[in-house]
Design a binder for these strands. Structure first.
Lengths: 204, 204, 204, 204
DNA sequence: GATGAATGAGCATTCATTCAT
DNA sequence: CATGAATGAATGCTCATTCAT
């Protein structure tokens, strides 16, 4: 990479890091572009070379941060060493929750966004082949691809939404207290997907 | 109620209804107080007689709308006619999901907020005694109050977060397809709470 | 007119007068809205209550100023006392040129705009019935309405474009020197319209 | 011309052509230097090697375009074949008007500038000896140099200002309809300059 | 209480200009 | 010569808030 290219990347990263810090401190609504560039020590015009507005920057941050989160879990959770798919999934989830617990700023930022939509976007932009990962986890299972997607979706949403309040506010209980219940709930859900599939669609 | 009192309430209601319409259409960030009063046909100064700012109005809207949602479910879901607690809870949930499915604007507005925090606020401000309701549902169960709270919390978060994407985007599947899976997942969670409680808190 | 209405009009007028002064001094391109409001001693937001931007204000100024110009000529030129239509028209024109000569700022501002397009807009917005005026001037003449329009157009454009350089730069000669030539040219044009009308349209 | 020299000229020309296209499309005020260099595919810094700012470029464009206009008329109008001075002048004018009619962009650009001031500048910068041309046209006439200048000025302004609206907006009539009237008016003006010169200067 | 004209701090955004490469 | 990333002063514009009527 040329010196110029390197410098460009550095500026962009400095803006993203500064923005992340401000977004999680003051909230994105109360953060102005002036705040970001001033704190980053970069000229205002430079911001517009890299981002359309503060929401464009936010989106790029979400993708980056959630990808980092998943990559860490894949690398350090030791999920591959587990045998049962449920254990693998829980290992991944626990690693992510642990990361979030140790970084409340990241938690606050990602929580609203740790959802199916963002997960999908992160998947698309990431170098990691998530589809392959999840299929490898459940490979021994006789479920079809679509049902697997619904399953992952259900667990992901449960984890994402519960961990928000629990980690940030310790409400209704703190995370250490909640985790066993969450594990049970996840296992119960996974088991429910191994039973006979539901047949009757409910119409409105 | 005197005519004056009535007129006051009317103005406040008109502002809330108009704001709701704008919040769900343009988003609260892009909605200005000028937008609201102009569309409502009310003078700008009058806004400040009733609300501190647009976020104050939003909060009051959340409380009102979620209370309406729950009250409708309590009145029309027929949950009281069911015998098993699980059936009662699912009857309530289904009624709420049906309301949201039929009112995507309400869904969009409430979804981010159909969470534990808001639920608690709605409980506090409501005339309905929710604690009593939930205790009556699970009255036959030997679980203690705190575990019951965790249980309701878990189910509520699962429902709230999954229904958002499903109803608004039919992603990963549409609501009618998803509902049976959701029912199963809820039942599985409820069952898991009837098993021996977890004992080993996991430390970070 | 209520006190409030009066105050509003006063503010709008102060903005227009200040803008006129700046437009003719620095040019509209180099005049900023900040300049205008600052010099007028009015808050910036107030500007936007009355004008969309500085070009909207310019347009409103053009209409107002050209109307004032014509009205003065109609009232003070003594054109009505003349007998021949040519003399009436020249009386009007001379009055306008005199006004412009005595107010170079107005000249600079109006000159680019003393044209058919603006004349038409001024006519539309004015309380003066210009069509009636011109028909009264040429009433004894057997020309049709359309030819009359072309005639007025031709004279107006000649006067408008020549007077600009002559008055502002005394180039190629000063106004007093030029006026007799202009009178002759106008009379010649008017006479040419009294001859047999041209018949052969020239195609491109 | 060396290859380097050629390349330089090419860049300058590309900038001028692109700017002309943008000036006549969006207007010079709304055209930015960034627009020009981007559309021309040339680096921003390069602009400043050839022009001080966009108005400097505009001025150079005016000179170039009006010179092209006159040179074409001198070469192709066949004016030299006419005998009477009036016919020569009208031949030149008609050729110019025809060029403008066939190139409304050029018309829009040059119109505001087809005036005495620009004419003078074009004369100065051009390789054509305009003074000689006009003297040759009117050579048989006993008028002095200054009167000749006033005469040309008057006709030029009349043509320039009338053709603008007529060509661009066909208002008050289209060009083909107007041309015969314009010819008559020009002839009338020329004739008026052959009469006894005016003697009484009008004072303000 | 109700109004809406006026305010001006505050912010986003642009863009001519520079200069290291 | 040519480049284009970086700059930051300049400017347009918004909009919550006030207050005289």
């Amino acid at each position: 990479m040329g010196k110029l290219e390197e410098n460009k990347l550095q500026k962009k990263n400095r803006l993203m890091d500064t923005a992340f810090s401000l977004y999680t401190t003051k909230g994105i609504v109360r953060t102005t572009i002036s705040d970001i560039v001033e704190k980053a020590g970069i000229a205002k015009g430079t911001f517009y070379l890299y981002f359309r507005d503060k929401y464009d920057l936010e989106e790029k941050l979400i993708v980056r941060k959630s990808d980092e989160l998943f990559r860490h879990a894949l690398e350090y959770s030791g999920y591959a060493g587990k045998t049962a798919p449920e254990e693998k999934l829980i290992a991944l989830i626990d690693d992510i929750l642990l990361q979030l617990k140790n970084d409340p700023h990241l938690m606050r930022f990602i929580s609203k966004n740790l959802s199916w939509g963002v997960f999908r976007r992160a998947i698309i932009h990431s170098e990691v082949d998530y589809a392959a990962v999840f299929e490898s986890i459940f490979e021994t299972q006789p479920t079809d691809r679509k049902t697997l997607e619904i399953e992952v979706y259900t667990v992901l949403e449960l984890v994402g939404s519960t961990c928000h309040t629990v980690i940030l506010d310790s409400d209704p209980v703190d995370m250490d207290t909640y985790l066993p219940y969450l594990h049970r709930a996840i296992l119960a859900i996974l088991r429910s997907f191994r039973e006979d599939p539901p047949v009757r669609p409910v119409s409105a």
